[in-house]
Amino acid sequence: MMRVVHYINQFYAGLGGEEAAGLSPRLLDGPAGPGRLLDQLLGDEHEVVATVVCGDNHAAGTAGVTEELLGMVREAGAELLLTGPAFGSGRYGMACARLAAAGTTAGLPSLAAMHPDNPGIGEAGTAPVIAAGASARKMRASLQRVAPALAKLAAGQALTEQDGRVGRSARLGRLVEHTAAQRAVELVLRRLAGEDADAVTEIPLGGFDSVEPAAPVEKVGAASVALLTEGALVPAGNPDRLESARATRWLRYSVDGLDTLADGDWESVDGGFATTAANADPNRLVPLDAARALQRDGAVGGLHDELLVTVGNGTSVVTARRFGVEWAARLRAAGVQAAILTAT
């Protein structure tokens, strides 16, 4: 019998909803929430000995939190780690994926469960991810898939698609005999011979995200609004050395007390567009001057005092998704209701 430690968020632990999303990590004895059903499904084979809980905002937006959570998992004497199921929830999914990834890297057999389209899935690294439904309505069905996968992992066996394992297959680079142009001619000839487009492609299509717009803000005049940009606007001299392309991180700068972004104080280091006009008037990249006017007129309730910044140029979808989840966690924690994200 192996000792299973289960990671869940504040909601599934019964400690509160969005208002408790800032909850710091805590360790509970035995199973909690969905862990009870999991414990039943595992039968006599394995036992859920402890539950680690963290609020979604804290887990997605705090530096070093993954290490702290893994420390608690270790402290509880884990021989197996399950995180989730996170279903379609982005912040929860990211926390589950990161913790499972850290566990796997540290040699602890770990498993995350979430919907295949969860934006956190890209953070799972080499940890296996088992498919869960899109929402908690699929809790039982999801755990019925997770329990046997966990048993298989305990036995040291590799998990496959037959076990419900998901995650994009890795696209690995290699050199081949013919040039891309020569291969294109081959594909054209196969298409002209009547083969279907989808059958002769080197890159499978599909899987593009569609983002559902949030509901309109009810009382804009009372809402706190944040300014965000992927146009790489940073203090002059780029003191934190934001990349000009292929961002690995995002930064935040205070605009508290500023009425405008003065030229000379700010610059865009984006390598993907001509920055001359943006540097001549940084407000045209991040409209602080106009937002302050709206604030003075009472059209918006308040302006968030931090500008969140990254560079979109050449940044991969996986990384951009992560930034999105982290930004949402930070803004929610600060009580922001709406954001204006400028892109270049």
């Binding site: 696209r171 594909l187 196969r190 890159i203 299509l205 593009f208």
Partner: peptide, 23 residues
């Protein structure tokens, strides 16, 4: 393709509705 350092991310930011692509 822009599928991230480990190759597990979505490979394209914009693709055709259908088609035969060379990578």
């Amino acid at each position: 393709e822009l599928s991230g350092p480990d190759g597990t991310g979505p490979p394209l930011v914009a693709g055709p509705r259908r088609g035969s692509l060379v990578s």
